[in-house]
Computed example of a mutant assay.
Amino acid sequence: MTGKRVSETELMLPALYFINREPGITTTRLKLLLVDLLKPTGKDAEIARSRTDTYFEQKVRNLVSHRTLQRRGYALYNRLGRDGTHTITEQGKDFLQTNIDTLEYLLSGDFDYDDVQNSFANITMMGEQNRKILIYDENLVIEEGTRRVKNVQVYERSRKLREAAINRHTINGHVQCSVCSFDFYEAYGERGRGYIEIHHQKPIFQYEEQDIGKFIENALQNVIPVCSNCHRMIHREKNAPMTVEDLRQLIQCARTHS
């Protein structure tokens, strides 16, 4: 972890997500939802000096006191006693809708707090510069046989990255799980040749103007091949993904005591 504290800018997009979902949401309610969603760690999880709330919760309150959303025209604030309510504006809805796929990707990917925090900062900055961000979602490829993909472009990009990752890690037709070394080709013969799932260790984004070849080459540093079982174990606990090394140790421990 970097230990970097969250900024108001990094909280804007997830805050708008809840303000849009619950019109008239109070600051207290917004704070609780953001804490539950993002699960802050490090300094952000500590109680602020001379306060009863954490540094993270204090930053959520700063969204109000500094009029962060209002100054950008994204939301309206109505003070009610010591609390207050928030309502999203049309401009805020446009900003949220523009970034909704990216937001949902981050919130469903079980990435660690620092990575999500940094991603929100980049998304907000790019969005306000009208630069389009393209996402690569590992889950679309995993579930391709069980549901209709709603975003074909995201699926196609993700499939290309998956194929590039498999090619990178394939040796003589064999590609092994980075955690347990399971090999589908070895287990299932030709039917398993070249098959494996790909895990994103960090969020994968591409700016629209970036060269796709160079982007994929860089992105391959943050994706690894994993078997279906290990992939499910990595993501089994929402917002608490296991690292590859931790899962390896868990498997080794289980084998030792079996």
Rank of each mutant, 00 (worst) to 15 (best):
I100E: 05
I166Y: 08
G109W: 11
I25P: 10
N130P: 02
P203N: 10
Y17P: 00
I198N: 01
D101E: 12
T243A: 07
I47Y: 06
P14N: 00
S119M: 01
R21K: 15
F120G: 01
R255M: 03
R232H: 13
D246W: 06
F95W: 08
T87P: 01
V152I: 13
R159L: 15
L247E: 12
G213S: 12
F56Q: 01
K238Y: 11
L134F: 10
Q252H: 10
I88C: 00
R255S: 06
I204G: 03
I251R: 02
H199C: 09
A121F: 11
L250K: 14
A15K: 04
E186Q: 15
Y17H: 14
D183L: 03
E128K: 11
N130G: 05
Y136A: 02
R82M: 03
R61N: 13
E209Y: 11
R21C: 01
G24N: 03
I216T: 11
S181L: 08
F95E: 01
D211S: 06
T27S: 08
L11W: 00
D36N: 15
N130K: 13
Y188I: 07
Q201D: 08
A187T: 07
R236Q: 09
L33N: 02
L220K: 13
I142N: 07
N122E: 14
M12G: 00
R148A: 03
E138A: 15
Y188G: 04
V116D: 01
C177K: 06
E156H: 09
V223A: 01
V244W: 09
V64I: 09
A165M: 04
A75T: 05
Y113F: 15
N78W: 05
Q210I: 03
I198T: 02
C227H: 08
M126D: 11
G194L: 13
L32P: 00
L80E: 12
I251V: 10
L32E: 15
C230F: 09
P14R: 00
F18I: 00
V175H: 07
H66R: 15
D101Q: 09
V60W: 00
I234E: 03
D114S: 10
C180G: 07
L80H: 13
H199V: 10
F18R: 00
K39P: 02
V226W: 06
H199Q: 12
L76Y: 10
R79M: 06
Y77R: 12
P40Y: 06
L69A: 11
P241I: 05
T243Y: 09
T41F: 02
E8K: 07
R5W: 07
L250R: 13
C253T: 14
R191V: 12
L69P: 04
S228N: 11
E217S: 13
T256Y: 14
R168W: 04
V175L: 08
D183W: 02
A187P: 04
L107I: 07
A187C: 06
N239G: 05
